[in-house]
Structure formats: structure tokens, C-alpha cells
Design a protein around this nucleic acid. Structure first.
Lengths: 155, 155
DNA sequence: TATTGTTATACTCTATAACTATA
DNA sequence: TATAGTTATAGAGTATAACAATA
């Protein structure tokens, strides 16, 4: 079992566990990504969101529709360009986001549970360097675009 | 960016890169998983395969169909139980598997490229312990069952 | 003419259940 | 009555292209 396979295996495991945890808050992993980004970069359009996450604009529509239906975000017209719809969090969305942050802390603790404080720092630094070399955008999940999302993978 | 998120992000990246590499050999990630398992545990039924990978028997049918159409594996009747179909590799399947192993070495080298030999050993050991604590079956990819396989994840 | 957001459509992956042939 | 393999069906997730409103 080489490091690349362990990364794939653990990455999927971590994503699955996180999805289970936030399901209790009524949100999905991509919704969490959007909530966090909306909070951090307020006043942005859906196009900006599509560019940031490198997804299709039509998918942004679906995600924002979901957030709106759940009362976590709302669309607002841009006063300077009537084509644009600015997306912002509702009070309830900010509340859910606080819950998400707590879940993230619990999740992190669970994943690195078997490691000492020193080992955690070591792992973090090694992963950070590998991610940097791979050219990954900090905070943005690369998704599964080119990957047939099936189960019985060897790597 | 905590370790859990880095694992998710890097795991997806590694899986995507591996899928790209083996696409040149004409096989998909799950096909690689099956090829390797068939080679390592010869004479097994499709049911055994479904149990090992924890997937539905109906999916095994699809995967083995694909392998057969590509001439990489073939079904053979079990002499002791006429319900059972034993799956084995063809010569061409074994040849492709050798290519897959070479690709795995190249892939591993690419992922850990920025690390020294000592750091690679460190990372491997840390990942191994985390995977063990998480209860992951060695060599079996956990898949994306409970995870909405979308792109804009926060974790 | 280009851009924002939206809708429509098709395609892939997956889970479930029903079916057949054997045991 | 249970099991191995298969087929059929429906549901998610995704990509693509076309569209209306606006710039």
C-alpha cells in the first residue's frame, strides 16, 4: 500500500465521514463549500462562484436554489448590473455555518485521533507540501470530474 | 486548512491523476481494482468479489462484462457448482496488469515528489496509522457511497 | 456582440428489486 | 427454501447546449 493509495482511500473516508456529520445539520458537502465561501467573500455573483469553484454556472443555480429553499441564503439584485444576482447568507445560514465550523473541529479531531500533537503537525506539514506541489487551490475541493465515481478502486 | 480537509482534497487529486494515467491503458479505476484482485485471489466467484469490495452483485456483473468485452478477463463455469462463474484473467489481462503496476509506481513517485526519502517514509507511516484507526480495509477503496459526488466541497 | 443567470436534455453511475437456474 | 448470477428500472449527479434578459 503506497502513500498515493492511502491518500485516495483516506481522502474518501474523510469525505464520507464529514458528509455524515453535516447531514445532521441538514446540509451537504457542496452546500458547506458554498456557505463558507459566501460568508468569506460577501457580495459576489453566481458567476464569481462558478469561477472560484471551477464548476458550471448551471450547477451554481441548483446549489443556490437549494440553499434558498432551506432558508440559508438568498439572492439579491445587484444595483449596478441588473443581470447579476448577489448571493448572501440569511441569519439562519450564519447559524448553520457556526454549526458547520464546530463539526469541522470534531471531524479533524476524529481523523488525526491516533497521532500525538507533534505527529499531527508533521502530517499537516507533509500534506501541505504535497498539496502545494500538486497545484491545489487552498480550500477548494477538486471534485471527481475525470474520475468514474465507482467503488472498487485500486487507487 | 486542517489535515482532514487536506486529505480529502489530496485523495481526490490522487484518484483523478491515477484515473488519467490508466486511461492510457484503456482501463478505469474500478477495473484496476478488479484486475488486481482477480490476479491475487484466483479462482473466486463474482459473489466473492462483491463481498470483498462490498458492492452490489449486479455491479460486479457490469464490471466483469466490461473486462470480458475488452478481452482482459473471462468467465469460466465452476465444475462443482453450476450456478457459479469463476472469473480469471486472460493473457492480455495479465499484460495490462503489468502496465498498471508500472503506472502505479510512476503515480506514487509523482505524488510524493516534493518529499525526501525520509519524509516519504514518515508520511507513509502516519497515513498507515490513521487508516488503521479508521478501520479501512487494506487495498479496498471505500468508494463514495454516502457522499454526494459533487465538486464544491468544503471538506 | 458578450455576459448573467436559467432551463432543457442527455449521459453516467448507482441502488434496488425482480427474475432464472441451480443447489 | 436459499444462493449465484443476471436483468430491469429508477434515481442521483453531471455536462452541454440553448435561451431570455441585460450590458
Amino acid at each position: 500500500m503506497n502513500a498515493a493509495f492511502l491518500l485516495t482511500q483516506l481522502g474518501t473516508h474523510a469525505a464520507n465521514r464529514f458528509a455524515e456529520r453535516i447531514a445532521a445539520l441538514g446540509v451537504s458537502p457542496p452546500q458547506v463549500g458554498l456557505l463558507r465561501w459566501i460568508a468569506q467573500s460577501p457580495g459576489n455573483s453566481q458567476q464569481a462562484m462558478a469561477r472560484h469553484f471551477d464548476i458550471q454556472p448551471s450547477r451554481v443555480v441548483t446549489f443556490v436554489d437549494e440553499l434558498e429553499e432551506q432558508g440559508l441564503a438568498q439572492r439579491r439584485p445587484d444595483p449596478t448590473d441588473r443581470r447579476v444576482r448577489i448571493v448572501e447568507l440569511t441569519d439562519r445560514g450564519q447559524e448553520v455555518l457556526r454549526g458547520v465550523r464546530e463539526v469541522m473541529r470534531e471531524h479533524e479531531e476524529e481523523i488525526v485521533a491516533p497521532l500525538s500533537a507533534e505527529e499531527r503537525a508533521q502530517l499537516h506539514e507533509l500534506l501541505r507540501r504535497v498539496a502545494e506541489e500538486a497545484g491545489l487551490t487552498p480550500g477548494v475541493h477538486p471534485g471527481y470530474r475525470s474520475l468514474p465515481p465507482r467503488i472498487a478502486r485500486a487507487n
